[in-house]
Design a binder for these strands. Structure first.
Lengths: 206, 206
DNA sequence: GTATGTTTTAAACAAGTGTTTAAATAAAGT
DNA sequence: ACTTTATTTAAACACTTGTTTAAAACATAC
């Protein structure tokens, strides 16, 4: 298997892997260079500094992550289905990229860096009309009265935490990687039922 | 306000603050020395190395954190009350130490360090008889059939995540520290109700 | 007082950090 | 062909890292 991508891309790919795994202050420029099979000087030749390279990676990862969550809102499914799908999507995405939530959260709190992506997501969501959908469902008593913050907190808590705290949970219960990820499939079902019956205690339709 | 504690304690206190805030690889020995008002050499005079100092701090923090969660299990309250109190306790403890869960999780996954405290907690919990309490409640159909991993995942997800992801959530919704922590008080009530009605769908007593 | 053991300091150490330089190589343009 | 531009490299730069050294300051004994 030969990597025939450009040197710039090789560095970018390696940087993404290393940054996500160890964080900005947990790795060195030389480590990224080594991981990409390139020279240290090349990293700075293409990206000017470790910091600049990190910003590029971080913004890309953030956008990828946000987009995977957002796309569900623009569909025309029912509110209940949207949340059901949202949970499903988050679990799937994070299963494939288990370290990304922790990476984003850690680096976002490292320094108070502003990220347009973070703010823009909320605008996109409110523009999708899902808020009005929620208001309507709450009006007729189908849905519990709870704001968007509460809903997203419930979903993200139960979807992201099991992956963020993987190391802790694994050590506590002595589970292998395989066992742990298998268990999370069961947990996903629990979480889905718990959140949906909490948000929609009086199902009128569906 | 004069700090009249010993130099060793001053270093330990500063190290705890700095390590929790920035992580092991996010800070330097000189930063800890400066923060404690001491000399760099003194840090190594008392603790031999940055690594040794970190281990001491980490184990202490881990024990403090685990103990605050565990103590509820040894009471003679009903199972439902134990979980209710557990959520209350976790929220209270983490409100006062918001960075500790993230600190523990991050440092635990940094290297595969074994921590006896993590394993011991489970032994203490099973020794407290709460497992049998759960089995009994599940036998009579009062409690949903779910194992200890699932329960602790539900509780910790909904209690710890809101603090771990504070930076992300705050930026998304544009909340000040005060607003955010206020909101979490409301969220705690939601979480408590959600988890309890999920775990105990058919209340027989209480 | 001197002597002894402990605590504190400034200075130094080697290794590692991000970054830059200047020369070597390759590619493209004429 | 030659010139110009872009890529790659080894080496160096200045600075920070964790750690150690050796001497100073302090305390407590005799």
């Amino acid at each position: 298997m030969i990597d025939c991508s450009s040197s710039e891309d090789k560095i970018k790919d390696a940087a993404k892997r290393v940054f996500i795994l160890k964080g900005f202050s947990g790795c060195t420029s030389r480590e990224i260079a080594r991981e990409s099979g390139m020279n240290v000087a090349l990293v700075n030749y293409y990206f000017r500094s470790k910091d600049k390279l990190f910003q590029i990676i971080f913004q890309a990862v953030l956008e990828e992550f946000m987009l995977s969550m957002y796309s569900v809102f623009s569909s025309d499914a029912s509110l209940k289905d949207k949340i059901r799908i949202l949970i499903e999507r988050e679990y799937d995405f994070i299963s494939k990229n288990p370290e990304i939530p922790g990476f984003i959260i850690n680096e976002l709190s490292r320094e108070n860096k502003e990220s347009s992506e973070v703010v823009e997501l909320l605008n996109k969501i409110s523009a999708s009309g899902v808020m009005k959908q929620a208001e309507a469902a709450q009006q007729i008593g189908e849905m519990r009265k709870i704001d968007i913050i509460g809903i997203s907190l419930l979903v993200t808590s139960n979807c992201q935490y099991p992956f963020i705290a993987k190391s802790l949970l694994q050590k506590m219960h002595g589970l292998s990687d395989k066992d742990y990820f298998e268990y999370l499939e069961t947990h996903k079902k629990n979480v889905t039922e718990m959140i949906l019956t909490f948000l929609f205690p009086n199902p009128t339709v569906n």
